[in-house]
Design a protein around this nucleic acid. Structure first.
Length: 396
DNA sequence: CATCCACAGGAAGATCTGGTAG
DNA sequence: CTACCAGATCTTCCTGTGGATG
């Protein structure tokens, strides 16, 4: 038994491919951020107010995913922290902590106080945060990453409260850095929030293919052994990611998974073939994961879509709902209303599992046309494996 | 050219879970 | 114990709508 474990362990230790895989993981923050020098400079010059103990302007940071927004923010704050000791900062990812309650709880916890996981009112948490800030006399920088996700779900109320917090505290000062992928989202904000949060703005352009190549080269020389990665593989990964709005994270993932695949098949070098496989595998894993964690009725709606799709025919909400009702009656389960089903279809669309678009068919009404956007076999696999209630339902 | 299909999707609130405070 | 809270999910009720068709 332990032979097997030893074998697996030694295969990782004596990897033929990787020198140090960590450098390719998404949460690794490199010592230098190539091609983001301008952004670093701009952000630093905003935050440099801290040097005089003043509150820096609230700042909006825009840029598509994988353009280095988070990395730059963390990098600048960490570097400043080392040089100046007169401020504190909190980083909150508002996709993970996607409720007002969690945001406040996270901030308070990082400040060093425990709060219950649930049960209090947000007003109470806000009060506690104020109290916590009044304990000491510092400048507090709050970084809210991916705030668009939060605002979409819960509105801009918390943002308003956070921007107003300076009027309630006297000893400390708070400054907010809001990071967003979605530029349009600013327009939907309450004008008061927009003006106070957007005192400064910083835009991150996507990386172009050359810049991506450079980044990949630097990282792969740290992560891979000599000669494993050829220049053409780098170029391919960069090209794929550049096509997808210059997402560096995507490019790095691609490179890492390609390496993992090469390793799994006991190859000594990574070729274009592994990159292609990696691309497929990354997408498949993402889809599987998303489906497996869906709520029960969302899964049922999805199953209805799979079962009623014949080739690439587009389905209407009504057709899907009819099949869904059949399924719930077979399973003797409750069913949700069509109103809810319509929202669920929209959710599946946003996750990229189906593609839905609203069409007007004149006399034949307004509806959504829905097609499955992923391989049905993966859908079935994910459904069957994630919930035993689907175990005996086969496609057809 | 008005009609009317087959829904879209907004608003408000109900129900339930899993919690706190005193 | 009571009173209360947030958040997820869902319902009920609703108004809105582009264009094929009679």
């Amino acid at each position: 038994m332990s032979d097997i474990i030893d074998e697996v362990l030694s295969s990782v230790k004596n990897s033929a491919v990787f020198k140090n895989r960590e450098y390719l993981l998404p949460d690794y923050v490199p010592d230098e951020l190539p091609h983001r020098e301008n952004e670093i400079k701009k952000l630093a010059s905003i935050l440099v107010q801290l040097y005089r103990g003043e509150r820096p302007s609230n700042t909006f940071v825009y840029g598509l995913t994988g353009t280095g927004k988070t990395a730059v923010a963390k990098y600048v704050l960490n570097s400043l922290q080392k040089k100046l000791n007169n401020f504190r900062y909190v980083y909150v990812n508002s996709r993970q902590s996607d409720t007002p309650y969690r945001i406040l709880a996270d901030i308070i916890e990082i400040l060093g106080n425990k709060v219950p996981f649930t049960g209090l009112s947000t007003a109470e948490l806000y009060r506690r945060l104020v109290k916590e800030l009044e304990k000491s006399e510092t400048v507090m920088i709050i970084v809210l990453d991916e705030i668009d996700a939060l605002v979409k779900k819960h509105g801009d109320d918390i943002l308003y409260k956070l921007t107003r917090i300076n009027y309630e505290i006297h000893k400390s000062k708070v400054s907010i850095i809001g990071i967003t992928n979605d530029i349009k989202f600013i327009d939907g904000l309450d004008p008061r929030v927009r003006s106070s949060l957007g005192e400064e703005e910083l835009v991150f352009p996507p990386y172009n293919a050359e810049e991506l190549e450079d980044i990949l080269r630097r990282r792969s020389s740290l992560a891979f052994k000599e000669g494993v990665i050829s220049d053409s593989v780098i170029k391919l990964c960069a090209a794929i990611a550049a096509r997808d709005h210059g997402d560096a994270r995507r490019a790095l993932d691609l490179l890492r998974v390609s390496g993992e695949i090469a390793e799994r098949y006991k190859k000594k070098i990574v070729t274009e073939e592994e990159v292609e496989r990696a691309r497929v595998e990354i997408e498949r894993d993402r889809v599987y994961e998303v489906i497996a964690t869906l709520p029960f009725h969302s899964k049922l709606i999805l199953l209805s879509i799979v079962q009623s799709s014949i080739q690439d025919r587009r389905l209407t909400t009504g057709e899907i709902y009819t099949r869904y009702r059949e399924l719930t009656s077979i399973m003797s389960s409750e069913s949700v209303t069509q109103r809810r089903a319509s929202d669920i279809i929209n959710e599946l669309d946003m996750m990229g599992i189906v593609s839905a678009r609203v069409v007007n068919r004149g006399r034949y009404g307004k509806t959504k046309e829905v097609v499955l956007a992923v391989d049905r076999n993966i859908v079935m696999k994910a459904l069957i494996e994630s919930d035993e209630r689907f175990a005996d339902i086969r496609s057809g």
